[in-house]
Nucleic acid binder design. Structure first.
Lengths: 185, 185
DNA sequence: GAAGACCTGCGACAGGATGCCGCACACGTC
DNA sequence: GACGTGTGCGGCATCCTGTCGCAGGTCTTC
């Protein structure tokens, strides 16, 4: 297995900008990446992010695509301009191919959809350009990813089952049954 | 609506490489693009494509991702090396985010999933850099999130079904069935 | 070149999960 | 009180999944 922490420790600049409007998620992700050796700055909006970039251009960035006050793409460009060697990854719950293409064209090195665990993010941040495929050690199970996503939207819909089912484009009855069960391994 | 034909007629170099292993589709697409003013060369395999690039580096390219004898990514690199200003788009049957990211990083300007009609392709080929920010939309369906995750790990495992299934903690047979199907809405 | 350890595809089948119908009931609003 | 919307939950046909197994491919190692 690749030892991520060792790779991170070897970095000369560990500064990392984390931009996400979901405060709990942002804190959790920031903490997890800090434990792995990064030195994260947490922000929750595009304007904050731009200010942070102006005061210190980070070596790494993890950006949400959809924010209240704009799109993460602006931040990608700002970071790229301020620091062309920065490694940026986009993280989004509203992922689709078109925005992924945009993000990469704007200068992101990877595009992950939520939920993504800290190891995934760290791996993506450290991936060398054009290197051979680094083997994923223990990714979340496919069902777990699905479950996490459902939980996220459910929270976002204020525990409204009917609405969640509508937005997720699934049957209310099915959603009910899934919510009644515990998380898959 | 932009008049595509007029834009194409104004081009100084209309050479276009079309790579797809599905012969009828390739012919149909090639003909449609020819009617719109391009001057297409049709090939059906990676090796043929590389040979075509060597004899004449095209100004445009429409490449399938999955071929019998390799991946379209190799052709992207070859075209890029031979002609850095070439506009390349990837066309794939089962479009997923992971391969879209790969394609764009390799140098493609866009990534379309089939079915895509000739107008879509032509529009993508002519798209000016830095235009049209597609609007964000509603979240992915739960099944789509699961599918994208599976696709990502599958890519990371170098298309090794057995290994992907092991990492994902799911049954190889089930994975096979999922991979054989197209993306859930 | 045969053995072994991988991989791949795919058929079959039981049991669990899902989509979809319905019903009863609880809130708010007009 | 009618109406709209939400929540639970039962039942049922259907689909998907987990689990076998088999045949065949490729590669490494004696």
């Amino acid at each position: 297995m690749t030892d991520l922490s060792a790779d991170i420790a070897a970095l000369s600049d560990k500064s990392l900008l984390v931009l996400d409007d979901d405060a709990p998620l942002r804190t959790r992700l920031g903490r997890a990446l800090e434990q792995r050796g990064f030195e994260p700055t947490l922000v929750g909006s595009v304007s904050e992010a731009l200010a942070a970039v102006r005061s210190h251009a980070p070596a790494f960035a993890v950006l949400d695509m959809r924010l209240e006050d704009g799109t993460g793409l602006k931040v990608v460009e700002a970071v790229r301009d301020a620091r062309p060697d920065a490694k940026i990854i986009m993280l989004t719950g509203y992922g689709n191919i078109a925005t992924a293409v945009q993000a990469v064209k704007a200068g992101a090195v990877d595009y992950l959809s939520k939920p993504a665990d800290a190891d995934d993010v760290a791996r993506a941040l450290l991936a060398r350009t054009g290197d051979s495929p680094p083997p994923p050690e223990n990714p979340m199970s496919a069902d777990r990813v699905r479950w996490e996503h459902i939980q996220r939207i459910y929270e976002l819909c204020n525990h409204n089952v009917a609405e969640t089912a509508r937005r997720l484009n699934m049957h209310r009855r099915t959603l009910q049954r899934i919510l009644a069960k515990r998380a898959p391994r």
